[in-house]
Write a protein that binds this DNA or RNA. Structure first.
Lengths: 125, 125
DNA sequence: GCTGATTGACTACAGCCGTAATCGGTGCGA
DNA sequence: TCGCACCGATTACGGCTGTAGTCAATCAGC
C-alpha cells in the first residue's frame, strides 16, 4: 500500500506498463516492448525512464555498462491510487454511482454482472 | 452523450464544478463559489474561464458589460468519459476488477454494497 | 589499437498548466 | 464631468510533458 507521491504522466505510464509486464529490463528492451503501442524513438523511452527514476517510481541496477530497470511501485498500488482519486473527485468517494454510470452506458457485460455479484456475496459474509 | 474533445485540467475542473452547481454565473460569482475550495485570485478564475471558452467547454452570453458563463458539457457526460477512460486504461475496460480493487481497500460501505445489489438486480431484468 | 555501435547523460523546445499582474474600456457615483 | 471600480483581454512566467537530438564514454570486433 505504498503511497505514490509523484504523478505518473500519460507517456510515462506506457513505459510503466512495459515494466510491470516484465522486469527487470534494459532500456532497449523496454523500448522494443513499448514500440508495439507507440511509435517512439529509443531516446524518448530513455528520457521517460530517467524521469521515472527522478521521481523514484522505478530504480535501476547496473549490469555491465547498461542498467536494468525495475518498478518500485506495484501496479496494484498505482491502480488503487488512481481509482480512489477518480472516485473521490467525481463521485464524492462513493463507488455505486460509478457503477450506475457505467451500467447506464451499457459498459457492463453479463460476465461483469456475474462477477460483481460474486464480489458482493463475498463482502457480505 | 456529447463527446468531450478537449481535455479539462485539474484547475479547470474546479471551475466547472462551480458552473455545474449553478449556471449561468458571472465570473465574480464563479470566483466566489470557487473560493470555498481554492484560494485563488479572481484573475486566476477568469483565466480559467477563458481557457474553458477557448476549448468550447463553456459558453458566455453578454449581459450588459459582463458575461454570464454556462457549461456546454453536462457533468454526466464528462463523468462518463472520465470513468470510461480510467476503466479502459487501467482495467482493460472491465469494471469488476475496479470494484474488486476498491473493495479490497475497504472503500465500500454497507450502503454502497446495498446500492450495488440494487443496480445489479435492475440490470438482470 | 582503431572504429563503429551502443548506452546513459545532458540539452532542446514547443505546448499545456497553475497562478497571476497589467492594460484598456466603460459605467457609476460625487 | 472626473475619477474610480470593475470587466474582459492580453501578457507573463516557471514548471511539467511529449518528443527527440547530441555528446561522451565504452565495449566488441577487425
Amino acid at each position: 500500500m505504498a503511497d505514490i507521491s509523484e504523478k505518473i504522466s500519460e507517456a510515462e505510464l506506457v513505459v510503466m506498463e512495459a515494466l510491470w509486464e516484465q522486469s527487470p529490463q534494459t532500456a532497449t528492451d523496454v523500448a522494443d516492448r513499448v514500440a508495439a503501442a507507440r511509435d517512439w524513438s529509443v531516446q524518448t523511452v530513455k528520457t521517460l525512464l530517467s524521469r521515472l527514476m527522478a521521481k523514484d517510481i522505478i530504480a535501476a541496477d547496473q549490469d555491465g555498462r547498461r542498467f536494468l530497470y525495475r518498478p518500485l511501485v506495484a501496479r496494484d498500488d498505482y491502480v488503487a491510487g488512481e481509482s480512489g482519486r477518480l472516485v473521490n473527485r467525481l463521485f464524492g468517494g462513493r463507488i455505486s454511482p460509478l457503477v450506475a454510470q457505467l451500467a447506464s452506458q451499457d459498459q457492463l457485460t453479463a460476465e461483469d454482472i456475474a462477477e460483481l455479484e460474486d464480489i458482493l456475496k463475498g463482502l457480505k459474509s
